[in-house]
Design a protein around this nucleic acid. Sequence first.
DNA 1: GCGCTTTGGGAGAGCGTTAATACGCGGGGC
DNA 2: GCCCCGCGTATTAACGCTCTCCCAAAGCGC
Lengths: 339, 339
Amino acid sequence: MGRSIVRLKDIADKTGFSTNTVSLALRHSPRIPQQTRDVIQRAAAELNYLPNQIAKSLVSRETKTIGLVLTDINNPVLTHTAQSIELALSARGYGTLFATSNNNLTEEVRAIEMVRARQVDGILIYPTGHRQLDHLRMLRRANYPIVLLVGEADAGIDAVGMDERRGAHKATRHLIDVGHRRIALIDGANPQGNREKREGYQQALAEAGIGFEPALVLDPRGNSVDRGYWAVDGVMSGPDRPTAIFAANDSLALGALRWCLKHNVRVPEDVAIVGMDNIEFGEYAGVPLSSVDYAVETVTRMAVERLMRLIAAGDQLPEPRITQIDPDLVIRESTRAQR
Amino acid sequence: MGRSIVRLKDIADKTGFSTNTVSLALRHSPRIPQQTRDVIQRAAAELNYLPNQIAKSLVSRETKTIGLVLTDINNPVLTHTAQSIELALSARGYGTLFATSNNNLTEEVRAIEMVRARQVDGILIYPTGHRQLDHLRMLRRANYPIVLLVGEADAGIDAVGMDERRGAHKATRHLIDVGHRRIALIDGANPQGNREKREGYQQALAEAGIGFEPALVLDPRGNSVDRGYWAVDGVMSGPDRPTAIFAANDSLALGALRWCLKHNVRVPEDVAIVGMDNIEFGEYAGVPLSSVDYAVETVTRMAVERLMRLIAAGDQLPEPRITQIDPDLVIRESTRAQR
DNA sequence: GCGCTTTGGGAGAGCGTTAATACGCGGGGC
DNA sequence: GCCCCGCGTATTAACGCTCTCCCAAAGCGC
């Protein structure tokens, strides 16, 4: 616990006032005359006093710290989210206690216990399973301030996030609009029970009267560029190649793009590619990548604001509010050319 | 501070034992007979008891939490570092209190105060300025466990990091070896006082008898892909184009690569490019990027181990130890072809 | 000069936990 | 039969801070 040994009592001893008076003076209480405050504050500065937030928390029953639980920070969009949240929280005087679940429910539960034991004032979480929310609902029911970073419609918990179904629908629809009918989907989250993207994809196909072909749904078993590369290797090498690929995130899309460039498959002439999240590396890729934009700043701003409101509400939380942000599709060269 | 209201006292009331007995029982003290322990532990489980780490910290004088202060998590290598550190710490039962300095010394100081006020047991920091370490040295002198994530040789503080000077030297040397003499450097950190990369670059030039040309040193004013793109726009559009580019990180390098691809400048035939950090997006770029590998896992493992040792040392810290990791150069297509 | 308020400050309790110490009681040694 | 010991548990005092009283002296009106 650091080596910070200067306490209120030390300032009290040095100035001759009681610890109580010192405490009030350092918090600018009007009950202490200006002159006394000056003396005390000067003494505090000389001793290099730093208030012990732990002791403060014990009595005030708030830690001014929130728990941030993410699945896996290597996804650039979650990285950006983490950064943006930390910024917003620190601007409000809150610290960020960070933990990862590694896309594993058991670890998620452990991470939540860890931050709860440290008495965080609230939790922001990007849950592993968008459907496995019971443990979170229990917290919410116990009046624990918690906000999901996923726009899960029927969570029963406050949530702010991209409408992934609509995003996937827009991306697929766009591919259809520019003339594609054989559209592959790369999505690692679907087997884990996060079906939104898959549903958006299927819905767009259905609306266009295109039959759903299970062979075109690829499970990359991960979310790295590498995974995207190998996910498409099978179908693309085969005889019945798709003419378009929709990837559930830009890392996967860039992997697919790389496969194409390496095998002299022209993008977008031979195969069009759309990603999701609109990360910077996509914009500046070998062929600039079309992508569904994830409005990180908007999501984090709203999520933090909502969490602050829940914290302020105290013992009687308001009804949960779910905000689903309708994402924009950013069209770049990887789908630009008409067929 | 959450809404966790179950205390030792509640378990005591329920079971009829004193809070003290409950405390001992839950910590498996041999002083409490097995049978009593069972009763108490069952009651604790029923009440959903979660120990209050804050209260525990106040008396034990350790929080089992460490502060992680980074400049800017958007750099993929720092992202990876953050993830890897969180993992290592959580495996050791430590929480990670995370803060960013946004590459600003004032904010760095504030971030450190924030984590110190929360009584973290130690600090891991990627400092803004590799030469502005006085405030950190003061902490170290006060026996505060702190480890830098930068291999700064004469820090006087424990440090683990890549040897950036050698890395830059290797990259530049490689470009010289494959026949280049007009080699541009893109480096945003140099104007901030982090001169290691620049020095490695200049040293390699000098050894090869190549005159240093200030016009070839480009300040991107940032570290995004976008910045890399615009940083090279000037020299590359001019008459006296360099034939090779060494970028201080892969984001910048990918920006430069993108400029080339967009303007039909062949890589590596017309211009060779080397980056630094060896991020995955570089490996799968339009032209796979040569890069100096940053051994993230090694750095974080050693840094965390060192921090643990410092924490265990208590009031008498051992002499600071600085570990500089000699990075490997990964050669890919962006520099492969001989001229 | 009396009682009132106001001003400046202190004493003490308590936040949830742990560590040190105290205590009651049963049993064994002599 | 008495003392002592040890077992099982309770009591008490911290940890550093804030909050709720409380008190003493000064100021003020009549």
